[in-house]
Amino acid sequence: MDKYEKVKKIGEGSFGKAILVKSKEDGHQYVIKEIGIFGMPSKARQESRKEVAVLAKMSHPNIVQYKESFEEGGSLYIVMDYCEGGDLFKKINAQKGLLFSEEQILDWFVQICLALKHVHDRKILHRDIKSQNIFLTKDGTVQLGDFGIARVLNSTVELARTCIGTPYYLSPEICENKPYNNKSDIWALGCVLYEMCTLKHAFEAGNMKNLVLKIIRGSYPPVSVHYSQDLRSLLAQLFKRNPRERPSVGSILDRPFLYCRIERFLTPQRPAPGSIPLAQKITKPATKYGVPLTVRKVSDAAKKPAERKPVVKNKPVSRLLK
């Protein structure tokens, strides 16, 4: 911790404290997650080191960037970028009952999906998707944080039990003690989307038993008809009780009403007309999102007007994202 100067404690999450610090080297502000690992078996500690190494390699515009990690005095410290815009949970509470526009919700949601797709494509599960783990940068970009940390610490059952908090985002299969998979992340994604639409949790109850019952039944108050049928239908899909019936994050992004928004997060400010070929405009920023740079060559025969096939509008970007 010698390299950093503590500014203030900014939160206490499921697995430790979040401290705002200032780097003595570059003067930038960062957030340090302090996680107590004292007493953790050596095998579990080794697993946590491996997991953090995986997290450090994550690089995506919609994922909070990890800077470094180190162990000191029985704690694991993970240093990450500071999102000055705060988290989505605080943003929702600040609305004081005034609903967000559908435009705003979908722009945020698409960015969350792009981040989650990056994670799932690398065979990593987030395990702790909630509005408190979705952050906003100074310019309003959404960034997903804290993924993987829950998995690091799940080997310590006692810690997981004591720190689980109020489980608003648990999927029915977890409530029934079944294994966690990527479809449990999709359920939690549905919980976040519902929260953005209603400013409330989808599943709430006075005690744990009733909350679990509500989650297992999949019963939640309907979303206002103020929002489109597309949005409400998607929510119903995300809240399918059978995980196999829930869509993958890739197929969520394939939906036309979301697909049409992806490009604005892939394409930077447009250069002067004619200065850069269209393919480069798309592929240069697309590399940040893990989109391959290969551009399919079109044969001369395919270029003939008579043989040209109609353009399918709702697929190209999602194909690129796979």
Rank of each mutant, 00 (worst) to 15 (best):
C163W: 10
V223P: 07
G206D: 13
E204H: 07
R217H: 13
N181F: 02
R255E: 15
K178A: 08
S233Q: 14
E195V: 13
N210M: 06
D185E: 02
A236N: 08
L238W: 01
K214G: 08
A202L: 00
A202M: 04
R244Y: 11
G165H: 08
K183W: 01
Q280G: 13
R255W: 08
L266N: 12
D254E: 14
L234Q: 01
P271Q: 02
L211V: 05
K281Q: 14
P221L: 11
C197L: 14
K281Y: 12
D230T: 07
E195M: 07
H201E: 01
S228D: 13
P247T: 06
Y259I: 05
I174T: 13
C191L: 03
C260Q: 11
A272K: 03
K281H: 11
S224W: 03
G206A: 10
E173N: 14
L235C: 09
C260P: 07
N182Q: 06
S251T: 12
S219H: 12
L234N: 01
T198R: 11
Q229I: 14
I174C: 06
L193M: 07
S248G: 10
S184P: 00
L235A: 08
L170Q: 11
K200H: 06
K281R: 13
R255P: 09
V223W: 07
S275Q: 09
R244E: 08
V225Q: 12
L278T: 09
L170I: 15
Q237V: 10
W187H: 06
G218P: 01
P179T: 00
F203A: 02
C163N: 12
A272R: 11
